[in-house]
């Protein structure tokens, strides 16, 4: 199944090229600021692309996806702080626990259609948020996980060194995006598209829609949690803002900004929004006011993501050349 899919070689080459470019970037352009930005973008790219598995590919508009981002950050941070395990073990704990969270939340939420689904996912996120705030002895409440996350070396990788951290984050995001690409291009990925376009037809064809949606929800949750984990590694802590609803709002904005009809759109949106947030934070203290205005301009003016425009441009050109060429 893995080797036969068309374009797999192309995707692998693109991924390898992207990885090489990202790994070489610090040598070509040594800048602490760029490094930090790339790590943050990596976290958000995983988060936004995983959200798009639900929104763009399956038609499930989750408004609580930030719950996984925050959960991943806390799960990883707490495993390192409290259990004193190695980093690979903590990653495994993060993956397994976020999959379980996805399973429970998904099993309840997926019964609901359309806007009810959006509501209940948001409600679950806020439940997690209020738990994080209230459970001070474990989570540090509104102060967040303080005292830093220990980063013992493993397999010759020492994540307390900045260059290692950078390489780890970009490798993880490239592998993560490639894995998600593989999922959406697999027969399962096309099943999800069919459910999005015509649920009834999928049911008639004997597809267990509930199970397929639940699988997608769990997968998206795990990748979202990995994004949160990268973030926790980067800031060496976890904060309630990671679990707050604004995280989900930003996720939605990222995939809209980048364009949800292409695979790479959400990741592009993560880059744009991160840059934008940096500029806004540096330029003004009224972050919400400016970001809100930008979102309004986008929603009422542009109305389409950046990669949507590019994809349209290519389509128009192709159609024009096929017409003139006969």
């Amino acid at each position: 199944m893995f080797a036969t899919r068309p374009n797999l070689t192309r995707d692998l080459i693109i991924a390898a090229a992207a990885l090489i470019v990202l790994l070489l970037l610090p040598y070509v352009w040594p800048s602490r600021m760029i490094n930090d930005l790339v790590i943050r973008v990596s976290a958000f790219a995983l988060f936004a692309t995983s959200l798009n598995l639900l929104v763009g590919y399956t038609g499930m508009v989750s408004f609580g996806h930030g719950m996984f981002f925050g959960f991943g950050a806390y799960a990883f941070g707490l495993s390192m702080q409290r259990l004193g395990v190695s980093i690979p073990t903590a990653i495994l704990i993060t993956i397994v626990s976020s999959a379980l969270l996805g399973l429970v939340v998904g099993a309840i939420s997926i019964r609901l259609k359309d806007i009810y689904f959006s509501f209940i996912t948001l409600a679950f996120q806020m439940l997690l948020y209020s738990t994080v705030i209230a459970w001070v002895p474990l989570t540090g409440g509104d102060q967040g996980l303080m005292g830093g996350i220990p980063r013992p070396p493993f397999l010759g990788i020492d994540l307390s060194i900045e260059s290692h951290r950078y390489a780890f984050a970009v490798t993880l995001v490239v592998i993560g995006l490639l894995a998600m690409r593989q999922i959406v291009e697999s027969p399962f990925g096309y099943t999800l598209r069919m459910i999005r376009d015509n649920t009834e037809r999928a049911t008639f064809l004997g597809i267990n829609v509930f199970r397929a949606k639940l699988t997608a929800f769990v997968i998206a949750g795990v990748f979202g949690a990995l994004g949160g984990m990268v973030m926790a590694l980067f800031v060496s802590g976890a904060y309630p803002e990671f679990v707050n609803w604004t995280m989900s709002g930003e996720g939605i904005f990222m995939i809209m900004l980048g364009g949800l009809s292409t695979f790479i759109g959400p990741a592009a949106g993560a880059v744009i929004l991160s840059l934008l947030n940096d500029v806004i934070t540096r330029g003004t203290e009224h972050h919400g006011l400016v970001l809100g205005a930008v979102i309004l301009l986008f929603a009422l003016g542009l109305r389409k993501g950046v990669t949507d425009f590019i994809a349209d441009w290519f389509r128009v050109r192709r159609e024009a050349s096929s017409r003139s060429g006969g």
Partner: peptide, 18 residues
């Protein structure tokens, strides 16, 4: 629904800041 959500999200941010 995503566009409607975005417009509302923008206003929540703006009003909270205002």
């Amino acid at each position: 629904v995503l566009m409607q959500l975005l417009v509302c999200y923008a206003f929540i941010l703006i009003l909270d800041d205002a």
